[in-house]
């Protein structure tokens, strides 16, 4: 594969194009409302080394990680149960549609009002917002699980755990990965709103403070830090996982 056609080169090229476009617009607009990349970089370095960026990022990341883990575990379990059990699906479907369509802001406000401005309320609000989307995706996957392969497990008298982990669950991996990817991006956004509304630390809180000072370079510096983390997660976790679960599926014949 040549350098020009490699995916890494393509991604780098796209980043360079976006950065160049941003810088050109900043020069053209020439306003403090649209700071150049240099000013944003200066702000980034300032917040990273002299401000609370690392602390805020670690607090937000912890919240994201906890709520993401809880939401994925609950969503996968409920999704599988609804996918394989028609009766349960009929019973829970309306509730799922209701929760799915409640605005995130309403859930956050209600959690803060009912449980107070505490950490658990913040996590709960994020989880409630995320679980239904995971359930919907996993349920679809569980509905189309290949019965023929399950029959193989039955004929060869595989144990329940072997059937689940080697025959059933691998068929859901693409759905789990898709909901994890979509889930992470959604959870980032909801966590920030949760922090903005009711926490005194984290990136959401920091952004609120920067907004009050109209520090646009600071807001963009935090955004840049955020995007960098997402890219790191994508490259260090999601892509290797993608390769792992795609094993055997995208091979060519010898």
């Amino acid at each position: 594969m040549s350098l020009l056609t490699s995916p890494v080169y393509g991604r780098l090229l796209m980043l360079i194009i976006i950065a160049s476009a941003w810088q050109s617009i900043a020069w053209f607009v020439n306003s403090s409302d649209f700071p150049s990349l240099f000013i944003v970089s200066e702000s980034f370095i300032y917040h990273l080394f002299q401000g609370d960026m690392l602390v805020n990022l670690s607090v937000t990341l912890t919240r994201v990680l906890i709520s993401f883990t809880i939401a994925m575990i609950l969503g996968v379990i409920i999704g599988i149960l609804m996918g394989i059990n028609k009766r349960l699906n009929q019973l829970s479907d309306t509730l799922l549609i209701i929760i799915l369509n409640i605005p995130a802001l309403v859930t956050i406000l209600l959690c803060y009002i009912w449980f107070g401005l505490v950490e658990s309320a913040a996590i709960l609000a994020v989880v409630i917002n995320k679980v239904p989307t995971v359930v919907v995706m996993i349920r679809e996957g569980a509905r189309v699980v290949d019965e023929d392969l399950l029959n193989v497990a039955k004929v060869y008298k595989l144990s329940l755990s072997k059937t689940f982990f080697y025959v059933f669950l691998p068929q859901l991996y693409p759905y789990i990965m898709a909901s994890a990817r979509a889930g992470l991006s959604l959870i980032w956004k909801i966590v920030l709103v949760v922090e903005l509304l009711g926490r005194s630390d984290g990136v959401g809180f920091a952004l609120n403070t920067l907004f009050q000072f109209f520090d646009i370079a600071g807001i963009l510096a935090y955004t840049f830090a955020f995007i960098s983390i997402v890219l790191v997660i994508e490259n260090l976790i999601f892509r290797p996982l993608d390769k792992l679960i795609a094993r055997g599926v995208h091979h060519d014949r010898t």
Binding site: D148, L149, V152, V155, Y166, P170, G248
Partner: peptide
């Protein structure tokens, strides 16, 4: 049981 189709788990070697 040998089925009409091989029915091998594609994710396993």
């Amino acid at each position: 049981y040998v089925f009409q189709q091989p029915r091998l788990m594609p994710w396993l070697t």
